[in-house]
Structures are given as structure tokens and as C-alpha cells.
Design a binder for these strands. Sequence first.
DNA 1: ACGACCATGTAACGTGTTACATGATTGA
DNA 2: TCAATCATGTAACACGTTACATGGTCGT
Lengths: 192, 192
Amino acid sequence: MPTSLGYAILTLVETTPQTGYDIARQMKPSAGYVWQAQHSQIYLELGRLKKRGLLESKRVHQTSRPARTVYSVTKRGSVELAKWITEPPQERSVNDEIVVKVFSFARIPEKESAELIRAQMRIHDERMGNLEQRLAALEVSPRGRPANLGEYAALRRAIGVEREYLSWCRWLLAQIKVKEPRQRLRRRTPQT
Amino acid sequence: MPTSLGYAILTLVETTPQTGYDIARQMKPSAGYVWQAQHSQIYLELGRLKKRGLLESKRVHQTSRPARTVYSVTKRGSVELAKWITEPPQERSVNDEIVVKVFSFARIPEKESAELIRAQMRIHDERMGNLEQRLAALEVSPRGRPANLGEYAALRRAIGVEREYLSWCRWLLAQIKVKEPRQRLRRRTPQT
DNA sequence: ACGACCATGTAACGTGTTACATGATTGA
DNA sequence: TCAATCATGTAACACGTTACATGGTCGT
């Protein structure tokens, strides 16, 4: 049976038959909100899915552009995907370096730790802005409710993740700034 | 230079010299809130860190229990760690199977999709409860503010992640339930 | 001229998971 | 007696990242 990436590819291709390049754009790390992967991984997985008969491909020739290999889901692929969807998802461990770094913040100057967090906020602010634009684009569809609830849900999830991260960063910055004056007031208290 | 896991280990061992087993308990998948890893990975990494002179170990013999190999951070290890902390963290792609599954929810019966989400909520409710208990335990330290801001921050982050996830699940359930009646009211509207 | 985009692939390496392997003690 | 906890390790495999490889078109 396919890997998680394999199912993610099947999902996108079922919605719209498309090429590896198209998939890679939607899964581009730092931009993708359904699944993230590099093109190198995607082309290999497309090959495996085709070999297993879950995808089929048609070569489309173009003038003044390289030929495209357009994939679409076979009946078997569609059935496999439907079976997989209802199975309980694998829990992924979300290891984030920033948490490890923050764990030892007491050991570095306040200026450096604050700057580290501010840099993170800049990156994630931008990503959130991007995602919100896509959400706005989806919401103009008829009657406010988007045609594809799944895509809407994926976007809301991605935005929620970013919002939560940014709010944690803000809280952290406040903590870092508060720390110093407090310590000064209590300087004589021995450290246990 | 060590891997992210290596630095995570150095971080924990610097706070308290301890064994691979102790580290494995704190990093236990689904329970760890700083970094998650299996014991098999940890023992290998401990070996590498020792070989590079970032950790040193002392064997402690016990009665009626296997001997413990207690690791502590060397001066070199401490310096390496301090250097690493201020470097910008690697952005990790957070691929979550559940988002892929939700993307195709329109293709399965409402009952099944709702149950899938409810199962997820049970799992994450429990994890959040666990984390909140640990937070409460930390907060009893002198003056409400915990001795180790880093640990406190890591916990708050983990709890925030769970809270956000659960809130998304609740929203999703509401959407799934609302979908059917709405469609009935507008049944004659053609799908674009 | 130069960078970005279209378009597809392979190879080497590094990280993470699962399973194998062992064995005593403690509590239900 | 049975499961859990203490305690450490190895081996095979699966997954993901980085780099290598190629080459035309379009806009500035």
C-alpha cells in the first residue's frame, strides 16, 4: 500500500488530473497547506503509484514548452483512496527545533533570544498572510460556502496553526522582557 | 555537528545528568513536549555525542536493578549547545494525514467522517489533559513564575497546539452537520 | 544578459520507525 | 501468573532532503 505522500498525491490528482510539476507547486515546502514535499520525492512516488495501477498517465505535447505527463486516478486508485480515508490517521510527532532552543533561553542574552523569536514571527507572519489571501479567494465562491469543504478546512487548519504559533511567540517575548526587572527586584533570593 | 535530536538530548542532559532511559521517557512519542523520539534512536545518538566528546558517561551500579549509564554534558558540549541555540531554527514541514483525509470528506458518508474526527478529539483531549496537569505542577513553584521559563514555554506551546487542533475539530464537526440541511434547501442550484 | 519559470528525473545521504534481543523486579 | 517498569542495545527498512542533471522560453 502507498505511503502518506502517495495518498496525498492521489487526493490532489483525483480532484484535478495534473502533472508532477503541478503537484510539486501545491506541495512546495513552506507554501503547501495540504501536504508538503519536494519534487524529487513526488516524481518517484508518481512512478510507484503508476506501477501499482492506482494512477495512469497521458503525455501531452506542447509547442515551445516541455511535454507534460498528466496523471489521473484509476478506478482501483479511487477505491484504495476511499478505503484509506476512513482509517484512523497516523499521529505524527511534531518536533520543532524552536522549542528546544527556547528551553535553554535562560543561558543566552535576552537580546539574542528576543531577536530569534522576532525572526520567527516575520517568517510565519508572511506565511499566514499568504494563506489568508488564499482563503479570501476561496470564500468568494457562491453563497460564501466554498465548493470544496475539504480544501477550505485544510486552509483554516494551516492558518490556525500559524495563528497559534504567532500568539505563542508574542507571549514569549513578553515573558523575556518581564524577566529582567523581576530578577532585579528579587536579586537576593537564592536559586534552588 | 549533531542532529536536532542530538541538541535536544544535550539540552535535557544539561538541565539534569541522566540516562538514556530517562531521556526516552521524556521524549516518549505522544507524551513528550520538547522533542519526541524512540529509545532506539536515543541510544545511538548518545553514542555519537559521546564519541564527539560532547557528553561523558558514568556507570552507576544498583542492587536489584540493571546498571545505569548516566550521561552529563562536557564543557565542549555546553559550548556547542550555546552556539547552536542562537542559530535560526530549521523550519519543519508539518505533514498531517488528517488534513489529507478531510480534504476528501465529501466522498464518504457523514457518519464516518464525523466519527473519525471524534476519535481524534478523544486522543488529543487526553493528551491536552496530561499536559495541563504538568503545567499545573510547574506553576506551584515559588511566586507563580516557574524556575525554568524554557520548560514552561515548551509546555504552553504543546498545550496551545492541542487547543488549536481541538478547536479546528469542533469547527469541522459543525460544518459536517450543517452541510446536509443546507444542501437540501438549495438542492436545485447547479454545481459549478 | 540574467533570473525565473516550465518540466522531469536520478543518486547519495541522513533521519526515523519497527522489530529483534535480553532479562530481572515489582505490583495486581 | 501476568503485565508493567527498569535498562540497554542492534538491524533492516522506510521516508525525506540535498544535490546533481538537463534544457527551452519569457520578461526585464
